[in-house]
Each structure stands twice: as structure tokens, then as C-alpha cells.
Amino acid sequence: MDERTGKILKCAACILTALYFGAAVLAVAGMAVLRSDRLQAPEQPIDFPHTVHVGQLGLACTYCHIHVEDSPEAGVPPLEICMGCHRSVAVDRPEVRKLIRSYEQKKPVEWIKVHDLPDFIYFSHKRHVRAEVDCSACHGDVAKMDRIKRVRPLRMGWCIGCHRALGASTDCATCHL
């Protein structure tokens, strides 16, 4: 291998490395932007509008999220609750048809979790609701959301901020296992 070829090879390697890292950084950044949006407001199997149910009809959160006051987990409403109204209300809307089809075929709806905490975190809806923390403190104003979106960061620092302000426990073991 003469000196010239060696130089060209070295040069090429350098350019390739720069291109590789550049592409990687761009790809990561692009995915982060795209995914964050998708994650924060993912498309749901049924396009359920909180704007209608909360915003226009003024239903209370607990009308559907029945466990939120007495269980750590809020839970997602059983389809039977939806069917309570939608046996007769708006049965011809395409999204409601999806719901009825699910119910009749006995196929549960697989909603995408928007507000998801890691497994090693203990979070009790019951405790927060009983401490009179408003649902919107974490979930935002769902009455204005066509599609549910994560508006709060749900990170530890954000949790702690509130715990400090309200004088709640900031011991690690309150939430961490």
C-alpha cells in the first residue's frame, strides 16, 4: 500500500465516521421528536372524545373511572358502563359502532396507556383523590382534549415539587419500592 492510498483511506474513514455519527444524532433527535408526540397523545383504538363526555355533557370523572376513589388504580371503565348509554345514544357514529362491535364480539378494548408510571413506583389514586388533589393536577384539563394527551412530565422532580408544596411525605419509600 503506497502513501497516497493510505491517505485516501484515512480520509475516507474520517468522513464516514463523521457521516455515521451525524446520521445517528439526526435519527435519534428525529425519533425523539416524533415518538414524544406519539407517546404523549397516541392514537387510541376508539377515538374517545373527553371533550364531549366531560366538556359538553359534564360527566364527573368518577362516573366512568369507578375505582379511582377506593383503589390505588383508577382502572379503565368496563365496556358495560359505556354500553349503559350507548345502547341507545349515538349508535350510528362510526366510533360508537366500534365500541358496540367490541362489546358484542366480547373483545375487550386495548387502550394505549398515556399516563404510565414505571413498575417500581407505588402510586395510589385513592390517596391523591382523598387528599383532594384535583384530577387535572396530573391529567390536565381533559375536557379540552379530543385525544388524551400527557401534559405533565410525571417525573420524580415534578412529583416531589408538589409533595413539598403540600407537605406530603418525601421519603423515598413513599413511592419507591
Binding site: 407517546l39 397516541p42 375505582h67 377506593d70 383503589s71 390505588p72 388504580e73 382502572g75 379503565v76 371503565p77 368496563p78 365496556l79 358495560e80 367490541s102 362489546y103 366480547k106 375487550p108 378494548v109 386495548e110 387502550w111 394505549i112 396507556k113 404510565d116
Partner: peptide, 18 residues
């Protein structure tokens, strides 16, 4: 991307998630 899977009809003996 965790899923939240709804019950169709809540079980008779009253399952409360959690």
C-alpha cells in the same frame, strides 16, 4: 407502550383493580 385492557362486564364478585 403499555396497554390498558378494559373489562367487558365487571366480574360478578366485584373485582377492583389494585
Amino acid at each position: 407502550q403499555n396497554k390498558l385492557i378494559s373489562y367487558l362486564v365487571p366480574p360478578e364478585d366485584g373485582v377492583t383493580p389494585g
